[in-house]
Design a protein around this nucleic acid. Structure first.
Length: 888
DNA sequence: CAGCGTTCCATTTTT
DNA sequence: TGGAACGCTG
């Protein structure tokens, strides 16, 4: 291979086709693993050179493509296992890939050291070069608890009222900065001001400094610090660029800006070129909220370490990035229609702009679905087609038509749960396995009602999600002990266990330790050592401190002689931690002891303590299989990637399935993400999808009547069966009656097909079947009702709302013509106005007085793109989209 | 430092 | 409505 550095200066050749042709010719004859792939899959596997984006719809064999591709690379001898970088988001996905590659190529999996999550690979790289980013190779990976505790201290140290500015909030803010690849110096002043009246950025910087002295990194750092390492040490970057001959990325639609930058750096053929920095500028521009980019172009746009030899690029240049040299062989697999993690920093833009970011990229669509029936796919496809920001795919079923998607309704959530329970029992009687049935909810509070009902019925169920094994208090405590044995300077671990079990070392004692430690510049445990012999300390705490320090000295001495799992047992026993739980009489104490045992047992699999600690921080996950057959209950988010024969989708109501908060905070983008969530839900089903909505739901204790989800309107008639629930509890007529009244009172006539179907289902009026055909995917505006504002008297289109510009006029004519009450002029949904990440800058800035139709007068507290945080005079602080505001 | 009352809040969550 | 988290009191 020629010198990669040199090559990057050559003009970008198109991705060489020759390679794949040869591969195909060879593969056709001698590769059994290629058998059974459909043509698109095969193309995705065999297109090895350059950048490839595989748009893999739900159930189209995404993992198979990824794993086969790796097998293909290996079997052609294109690269060794250690030269393939393969990243996933979850450990589960990584594990599955390992297993499946193992099944194909055998032993070589063990030699795939670079197959893992973004974070675990980031950690691996970082440990190798820790000293270059001011860490030691054995740095600690902090969990969220530690992070919050640390931030609390910093906030207190700054004399900021933690009530008003909770550490949690700051943690989220810092996290979101890290997600966007911003280090403290890159956070623009305007945005840095969002926390505690302008001290957010300083706190972030202080936090980072503190992490260094603690020799610790949080999850975000595993990526961000790696990026910094790569930028500041091109020779290190080059080493990895050379090593990784092929890069594969799973779930590309979920990547955030930091992950994108990380990938970009590695996918360059060489570092240090102007082109590479241009890319970074581009990404930084995308990452920085527009308003701040305007305020402070320099800080928002410039790369972190400006290279003096490079000419400064104007902002104008970075908008249209110069093409890069040929990218490495990078293959990203994803599905924009399944991007449901925007709220935690995922940038759909990454996938939407792939061919822009990687010029000459080949885009391959996988649209043959092997999972679901034609009815299910028809419904899902039609629904998702209402989204605008998508690359567009049409899933085709390779199976039979199957049954239509069933839509049913219930009076309230209790009855909904009852109906689902009955249906499941019936399925069970028909011989369906409970393992093949799932209930997918939008929000976890919905689960409770199902659990209650299933307990009553004696129907086995399993809640997926919830607190992870390593998030449990007892595991974290035990881990803190082990961390401290491993790393005396781990102050956060020390704080966690200094008084667990109770040693009479309360807040006061800890405060003294802190003071001393700070004064002397030593870790807490050293301060404890000093105070343990100091006359100034009262005898009782003095003895406690002495014992504690002595214990840790002892354990540390044993570290090299004892197997680490035995050591762990000794630590837990001698510290009194095990005893603490043995004495505890609460119901879950036994379970906690069990978990501790499990923890110790699982240590056997690791070579040393260090390796184990790394594992728990990054890898250990929740699904320790319960073996009995049970119905699964989980959130729609948790269901991504899973499939079941039968899927129940309860709670399709306005405000819950398009979740109100998503609409309020992210407007149109939020709505589209909610729709993707609905789409993910339906496509989990192989044979049966059963959607339901209720008229009344208890929210925060009080009953609220609800409207059917707009997504119901977006389901195509031919694939849907509206079924009247059996049982007759509660009186449906009543339900509809009252809801109809409510609707009328709002003045927004509810005449959409979904609604009318519902009417029909209880023997209401008949409607013209043509109605349904009016629901076309290309008519999104017409389907969107204004959610918030229309409820206010006289709400709707008014001065506060911008018109729905540049959208095709919705075809209302037909529905009016067919005798339905005339609908009002199209009302813009809040989202219409909302920014995508590349949207226009907000016209508002901090401090502006504003007026909001619903919340009244207020003042702008913070600006984040088009999302504003407003302190309303009456309604309190809210996040709103700027287009909902007028200047006051 | 434990226990109790009060207050506040209430999508989605991986690593 | 229900829980978690906090602050006050004994």
């Amino acid at each position: 291979m020629s010198d990669p550095f040199k090559r990057s200066f050559e003009p970008a050749p198109p991705a060489p086709a020759a390679g794949s042709i040869t591969a195909r010719a060879r593969g056709a004859h001698r590769a059994p693993y290629l058998e059974g792939l459909n043509p698109e899959q095969r193309e995705a596997v065999e297109t090895l050179d350059g950048a490839v984006l595989v748009l893999a719809g739900a159930g189209t064999g995404k993992t198979r493509v990824l794993t086969t591709r790796i097998a293909h690379i290996l079997s052609l001898g294109r690269a060794r296992a250690s030269e393939i970088l393969s990243v996933t988001f979850t450990n589960k996905a990584a594990r599955e890939m390992k297993t499946r590659i193992g099944a194909m190529v055998g032993e070589a999996v063990e030699g795939m050291p670079w197959l893992g999550t973004f974070h675990s690979i980031g950690a691996k790289i970082l440990r190798r070069h820790a000293e270059l980013v001011n860490l030691k190779p054995d740095f600690t990976i902090l969990d969220v608890d530690d992070q919050i505790r640390l931030l609390k201290q910093l906030i207190a140290a700054e004399n900021i009222d933690e009530k008003r500015w909770p550490a949690r909030l700051l943690a989220n803010q810092i996290d979101s900065w890290k997600n966007r690849g911003l280090s403290p110096d890159q956070v623009s002043a305007g945005e840095g001001a969002t926390f505690a009246n302008g001290r957010g950025r300083d706190l972030y910087a202080a936090y980072q400094a503190r992490l260094k002295t603690l020799n610790a990194a949080d999850f975000g750092d595993l990526l961000l610090e790696t990026i910094r390492l790569f930028r500041q040490h091109p020779e290190v970057l080059r080493q990895y660029q050379t090593r990784f001959k092929y890069i594969l990325v799973d779930e590309y639609q979920d990547t955030n800006v930091a992950q994108y930058l990380w990938l970009r750096l590695l996918a360059q053929r060489t570092s240090g070129t102007a082109a590479a920095d241009l890319v970074l500028r581009d990404a930084a521009l995308r990452a920085a909220p527009q308003d701040e980019a305007r305020e402070e172009p320099a800080s928002a746009i410039s790369a972190p370490t400006p290279r003096p030899e490079e000419p400064a690029h104007s902002a104008g240049v970075s908008k249209d990035v110069a093409p890069l040299g040929p990218p490495k062989n990078i293959c990203c697999v994803g599905d924009d229609d399944q991007s449901i993690y925007g709220w935690r920093g995922a940038e759909v833009d990454n996938i939407l702009r792939f061919d822009h970011d990687f010029p000459g990229a080949k885009v391959i669509r996988l649209e043959r679905n092997y999972r679901s029936t034609a009815h299910i796919l028809g419904a899902a496809s039609h629904l998702i087609a209402h989204n605008e920001g998508r690359l567009g795919k049409t899933l085709r079923s390779e199976g039979e038509a199957g049954e239509r998607v069933v839509v049913s309704t219930a009076w309230d959530s209790e009855e909904e749960a009852r109906a689902v329970g009955e249906e499941i029992e019936q399925l069970q009687r028909q011989g369906h396995r409970l393992d093949e049935i799932a209930i997918l909810v939008r929000a976890s509070f919905q689960m409770r009602e199902f659990e209650d009902r299933f307990v009553t019925l004696g129907l086995p169920y399993r809640v997926i999600g919830g607190p992870r094994f390593y998030e449990r208090a007892e595991i974290r405590d035990a881990m803190a002990y082990l961390r401290l044995v491993n790393q005396p300077a781990d102050d956060l671990a020390f704080e966690r266990i200094v008084n667990v079990p109770k040693r009479g070392l309360g807040d006061a004692a800890l405060q003294n330790l802190h003071d001393l430690a700070r004064a002397r510049g030593v870790p807490l445990i050293e301060a404890a050592r000093a105070m343990g012999t100091s006359e100034a300390v009262k005898p009782k705490p003095r003895a406690a401190l002495r014992d504690l320090v002595a214990a840790f000295d002892r354990w540390r001495a044993q570290r090299d002689t004892l197997p680490h799992n035995e050591l762990a047992e000794i630590v837990l026993d001698e510290s009194g931690y095990t005893e603490m739980w043995q004495k505890d009489r609460s119901a879950d104490a036994a379970g906690r002891l069990e978990n501790l045992k499990e923890l110790v047992r699982s240590m056997e699999e690791f070579e040393n303590l260090q390796g184990f600690l790394e594992h728990v921080a990054l890898v250990m996950d929740t699904d320790r299989g319960e073996d009995h057959e049970a119905v699964s209950i989980m959130t729609l988010h948790a269901a991504k990637g899973l499939e079941f024969d039968t899927v129940f989708l309860p709670g399709w109501e306005e405000g819950l399935l398009p979740h109100q908060r998503s609409l309020d905070e992210n407007g149109r983008a939020g709505l589209e993400e909610e729709r993707r969530l609905a789409h993910v839900g339906i496509t989990r089903a192989r044979k049966n999808a059963r959607i339901s909505f209720v008229s009344n739901r208890r929210i925060h204790g009080s009953w609220t009547s609800s409207l059917p989800s707009r997504f119901l309107d977006e389901l195509p008639e031919q694939h849907v069966e509206v079924r009247e629930a059996k049982g007759g509890f509660g009186g449906y007529g009543n339900a509809y009656g009252s809801r109809f009244d409510t609707t009328a009172a709002f003045g927004s006539s509810y005449t959409t097909p979904g609604w009318r179907r519902a009417q029909k289902s209880r023997g209401g009026f008949e409607e013209d079947p043509h109605e349904y055909s009016q629901v076309e995917p290309d008519e999104p505006a017409g389907r969107m009702r204004d959610v918030g504002a229309s409820r206010a008297p006289g709400g709707g289109t008014n001065g506060a709302f911008k018109p729905a510009a540049a959208r095709p006029a919705p075809s209302f004519a037909a529905s009016s013509a067919s005798g339905t009450p005339p609908r009002r002029a199209p009302v813009t949904i809040e989202g219409e106005l909302v920014a995508r990440s590349t949207g226009a800058p907000s016209a508002f800035s901090r401090g502006d007085r504003v007026f909001h139709q619903k919340f009244g007068y207020g003042r702008v507290r913070a600006v984040d793109g088009n999302k504003l945080t407003i302190q309303f005079d009456k309604a309190g602080e809210k996040k709103v989209v700027d287009s909902f505001l007028n200047k006051a």
